[in-house]
Design a binder for these strands. Structure first.
Lengths: 117, 117
DNA sequence: GTCATAGTTGCTTATATTGCCAAATAATGG
DNA sequence: CCATTATTTGGCAATATAAGCAACTATGAC
């Protein structure tokens, strides 16, 4: 019994969002906007320390994935979170990381406890 | 004022977890285990419809990221969620997708409302 | 119109990911 | 020990992603 077409589409749309977030620079940008509110491309470029074109591309990936939305004001484009659910989602990621570190610590302790020396 | 070393490391560890999840097959596997409990590699291989070696590699990626944990029983290896926080995290992803579809619907309606025909 | 500023897009090169086959390893039963 | 079953790992070819430079578009000031 194998994966249905529906299952596949569902998994792909979720993967699309995760892929968009799965890059250090993009995570940093999302975090920054979450903590400090909307930013323009030039600000983000300075904060990230990469070429403007690179940052612009990261932003367009995040926008296409529905994570950021943009608003143009003159020649400046401000990017903001598309939904407060993004911040909640990132908080959930933090929990996963904490659990991971707890488990790694536990594994390490178990190894140490069984050592002969 | 640019990104600190700490910021970079923090963003990278988060990206590590997201990258591990950012693949349709891996999402499907995590979902399956979430809904139905622990599964062995051969079961998952049948459900996913890919080579055993491919599924095994996906599982090892998920395990290294701290998303799944494994338990060996004879020659069989059972994979389960490493933490209930994974299920919560995936639920948060669902919220993000819903928000995305709502926004897309809104954008579509706005375009239709302004049409001349 | 010209200039300057902000952003985006085309292109190329470098790097990473994915999938499968084949071979290796691990555990169990005869 | 040999065969069988479950899983992992090495290697390779195909594909995808990332970064920066240069060129382009858009807006506003003069």
């Amino acid at each position: 019994m194998t994966m249905s077409e529906d299952d596949r589409l569902r998994a792909e749309s979720r993967a699309g969002v995760l892929k968009a977030l799965a890059h250090p620079t993009r995570i940093y940008i999302v975090d920054l906007i979450d903590r400090e509110g909307p930013h323009c491309v030039c600000d983000l470029t300075a904060r990230v320390g990469a070429d403007t074109s690179t940052v612009s591309r990261h932003l367009s990936i995040l926008k296409n994935a529905g994570i950021l939305s943009d608003r143009k004001e003159g020649t400046t484009v401000y990017y903001s979170l598309a939904c407060s659910c993004i911040a909640e989602f990132m908080a959930g990621l933090e929990n996963v990381l904490h659990a991971k570190y707890r488990n790694e610590q536990k594994a390490y302790s178990a190894v140490m406890a069984s050592r002969v020396d």
